[in-house]
């Protein structure tokens, strides 16, 4: 049970208000039609599974319904930072 700071509501809320939406910073290719099958496959299916820092999208599903990014440590489950869509993480793996 995580305790997650919602950057839009400005306070910590319980995990059950949120949904994880998977790895963050995966940009949809600007021109999908010119992607090879392999490129498109990479975009759709291939995700990181790091032991350590991971950048993820979460949505405050039962609250303000806003999406945001979380940098989370996958071993300790510490949330190192929370940042809005369009922003870049400050805490990154070495």
């Amino acid at each position: 049970m995580f305790y997650i700071y919602c950057p839009y509501c400005g306070e910590h809320r319980e995990e059950e208000e949120f949904h994880n939406q998977g790895q963050a910073h995966i940009e949809r290719p600007a021109d999908p039609d010119s992607c090879s099958d392999e490129e498109w496959g990479n975009y759709m299916f291939f995700r990181k599974n790091p032991r350590g820092l991971h950048h993820e999208i979460w949505v405050h599903a039962a609250g303000c319904r806003k999406f945001f990014n979380v940098t989370r440590h996958t071993v300790t489950y510490e949330i190192k930072e929370v940042y809005k869509m369009g922003e870049q993480p400050k805490v990154v793996a070495e």
Binding site: H19, Q21, R28, I57, V59, A61, R65, K66, F67, M85
Partner: peptide, 13 residues
């Protein structure tokens, strides 16, 4: 609804 918001907020704001 979540799907629409996901694409609006993360891809096409």
């Amino acid at each position: 609804l979540n799907w629409l918001e996901l694409y609006h907020q993360t891809e096409w704001p």
